Simulated assay, not measured.
Amino acid sequence: MTMREWRLPAALILLGLVPMIAGAARLTELGTGPEVTPANARFVADPLPVVLHIVGAVVYTILGAFQFVPSLRRHRWHRRAGRVLVPCGLTVAFSGLWMAVAYDLPAHDNDVLAGLRLLFGSAMAASIVLGLAAVLRRDIAAHRGWMARGYAIGLGAGTQAFTHAPYLLATGEQPDGNLRAGLVAAGWLINLAVAEWYLRRPSRTPLAGPARRPRAGAR
């Protein structure tokens, strides 16, 4: 890859760094037999969905970032990586839905946020399935679009760290209720908007060769 091609995957991985660090801390906590608190009780009582979610999300975030590199999309690596990314992405989506249904609501959440998690988790799973169906029928443009949208939703936790930051800095407290639901939704919507811009922007790929001038006298 050229240095220019490195920029996008590096930016995507950096965006996912905060949730990846938080996820690693959660796994470490669960692996050390933690004291049960209101903040971790649901994870200690039923750790499987959160473990699947964190592990799947780390692989999906890092490996998925490199699927946006044009030079790699022209090699077999893209297809091989996709065979890992599809199950990882579905694991992230379905484990997120599992947690939304099975876990009690945390103190700062409400039913609106629970509904949004079900909505966007379902949208992520649907995007990945539609992307897989598109590539199987050789519709590469549709495949690229649906996979980009699924990745954008999957990377929502990274953007949500930034949508929450101004409130945290101003008040020193976590937002709650409908405000928190709005800030979480904003993270997903911002990512989807950027994904749509990325998909619709004019291509900068150079033409295969210079245009030929017509010969003198040609009509």
Rank of each mutant, 00 (worst) to 15 (best):
P70Y: 00
H78D: 11
G217T: 05
Q174S: 15
N191P: 09
I54R: 00
A195N: 03
W77V: 08
W197G: 14
L85D: 00
L130S: 05
W188F: 13
G16P: 04
T37C: 08
L72V: 12
A100I: 05
S127D: 02
L52Y: 04
V44A: 02
A193Q: 07
S203M: 08
L130H: 06
F162S: 06
H108W: 15
V86T: 12
V59R: 06
P47N: 12
V44M: 04
G150Y: 00
P214A: 09
L168G: 06
P34L: 10
V112M: 13
S122L: 14
V59Q: 09
L15C: 12
A45F: 05
Y167K: 08
W188D: 01
N191G: 09
F68A: 09
S71C: 09
L192H: 05
L155M: 10
Y198K: 03
A141I: 10
R180D: 03
R73D: 02
P34R: 09
L97F: 01
H164C: 10
H164P: 05
M20N: 08
G33I: 04
L27E: 13
P210C: 05
D111L: 15
V86W: 01
R204W: 05
S95P: 02
R149E: 04
S127R: 12
N110A: 12
A165F: 15
E35W: 01
T32N: 15
W146Y: 15
G187Q: 01
N110R: 01
Y103L: 08
A81D: 04
F162M: 13
F94M: 07
A148S: 12
R80N: 11
L192E: 06
P210E: 08
G115H: 07
I13A: 11
G154P: 03
A39L: 14
L97G: 04
L15Y: 08
A41C: 09
Y103G: 02
I62N: 09
I190K: 02
D109P: 06
L72Y: 12
A125S: 11
P38H: 07
W77M: 12
T205H: 08
W6P: 01
L113A: 06
G182E: 09
I153P: 00
V44R: 04
R76M: 11
R200G: 08
G33A: 12
W6A: 14
L27P: 02
G217E: 02
D176H: 14
S203L: 09
A186E: 06
A41L: 09
I153F: 06
G177F: 10
I13Y: 02
P49W: 00
I153V: 09
A123C: 14
D139Y: 00
T163N: 04
L97R: 06
T171I: 13
A181R: 01
W98Y: 13
L169N: 11
A208W: 03
M1A: 14
A45G: 11
L116I: 12
T91G: 07
A45S: 15
A181T: 02
R137N: 00
W197Y: 13
A107I: 14
Y60P: 00
A185L: 07
R180T: 04
V51D: 03
Y151G: 00
P210Y: 07
V55N: 02
V86K: 08
R212G: 04
L169Q: 10
L155Y: 00
G187A: 06
W197L: 15
Y151N: 01
